[in-house]
């Protein structure tokens, strides 16, 4: 069994921290904060780092997970999973393939994720390394191509949002960026005993937040706040402006793939987490029956993303509940560790 290197963990954290924010974080933040979205991302990053410092243990200690906990987590992953799949399918449909049915996109995406999740976290970690090179390449081209269209004046006015809404928006950003990273604590990691990936996770998170900040700056600086608030994915719209030597343009479809990497990885890790929880909840079932249950989960995710009305509570509340649950669990564990120490 190959171990996962620290850099692979950092890269996973890098991609995961961007996934949900790109999907529905930006559109909400630009509506609420306007140009202060830049401050929101900075403040939210600090808050996210605080959450990760508390939640990520210093040492990787194997902890037993109760069946009840596994069932609760399974339900959370299933309901969050179909919302995530729906958002990803909508993103691909409206931004990349408008003439392809959302059903086909959701099914293909889910099938791809299921096949890769069966391979295990090691393959996913290796995948993240390869995807990072593509990401760097596309992002560099985007930066070079968008530079001439940037207006510093569009970044004003700053500090127009009241402090309380600004803090709430920072919390919103922190939740959206931290929760996918917490999947790394749920999925089984083949790692050396007592090895901590805390530093790698934090560095990856910081890198992801830096990319998101750059995307927000570029979106604001190129479109201006009135136009940015009209679009759900402004960071994709600005890619349409890239043209080299007045002739070579229309790269937006290829370049927008860079934003898909984080979404793919978050979906795959979610599926790995679902497999793990199924094994824990239905530990008495045979392997074939557990795989059959996974197929049922697959169908649930697919039907939920395409046909079933979404969970009544907004996804953000669901993520908050998960985060609070993880914080409480961490505090309880911390208390237990302290009480068992001589």
């Amino acid at each position: 069994m190959k171990l996962i290197a620290n850099r692979q963990v950092a890269l996973l954290s890098f991609f995961l921290s961007q996934s949900i924010v790109c999907l529905y974080g930006f559109s909400f933040l630009f509506q609420q904060s306007g140009c202060d979205t830049l401050l929101t991302i900075l403040g939210g990053t600090l808050l996210g780092i605080f959450f990760l410092i508390i939640l990520v243990p210093k040492k990787s200690i194997k902890q037993k997970q109760s069946r009840l906990m596994a069932l609760v987590l399974l339900l959370f992953f299933l309901f969050f999973g179909y919302d995530l799949l729906s958002q990803i399918a909508n993103y691909i449909h409206f931004q990349m393939m408008p003439r392809i049915s959302i059903l086909m996109i959701a099914f293909s995406f889910l099938l791809l994720g299921s096949v890769i999740s069966k391979k295990g976290i090691e393959q996913v970690a290796r995948m993240s390394e390869i995807l990072f090179f593509f990401f760097l390449f596309f992002f560099t081209i985007s930066l070079i191509g968008l530079g001439p269209h940037f207006h510093f004046s569009y970044l004003k006015p700053l500090f127009t949002t009241e402090p309380l809404p600004l803090l709430l928006n920072c919390f919103y950003y922190a939740v959206l960026s931290v929760v996918p990273v917490l999947l790394l604590l749920i999925v089984p990691f083949p790692t050396r005993e007592a090895t901590s990936h805390k530093r790698s996770i934090l560095w990856g998170y910081l890198g992801g937040s830096l990319i998101l900040l750059l995307l927000a700056i570029l979106s604001l600086g190129i479109l201006g706040i009135p136009l940015v608030q009209q679009y759900a994915y402004p960071f994709v719209i600005i890619l349409k402006k890239i043209m080299f030597f007045g002739t070579f343009g229309r790269f937006e479809l290829i370049l927008s793939l860079q934003f898909l990497f984080g979404m793919i990885l978050s979906m795959i890790l979610l599926l790995i987490a679902i497999r793990k929880q199924l094994r824990l909840v239905f530990s008495s079932f045979s392997f074939q029956k557990q795989e059959g249950l996974f197929v049922l989960s697959f169908l649930f995710l697919f039907l939920g993303a395409t046909y079933i009305p979404h969970f009544p509570l907004p996804t953000f509340v669901l993520l908050c509940i998960f985060l609070v649950g993880m914080l409480l669990r961490r505090l309880l564990l911390f208390g237990k560790e302290k009480s068992t120490q001589p």
């Binding site: 479109l223 201006g224 009135p226 136009l227 608030q229 009209q230």
Partner: peptide
């Protein structure tokens, strides 16, 4: 785009 921005 300029027109839209100005109008908004």
């Amino acid at each position: 785009e300029d027109m839209a921005r100005q109008y908004l």
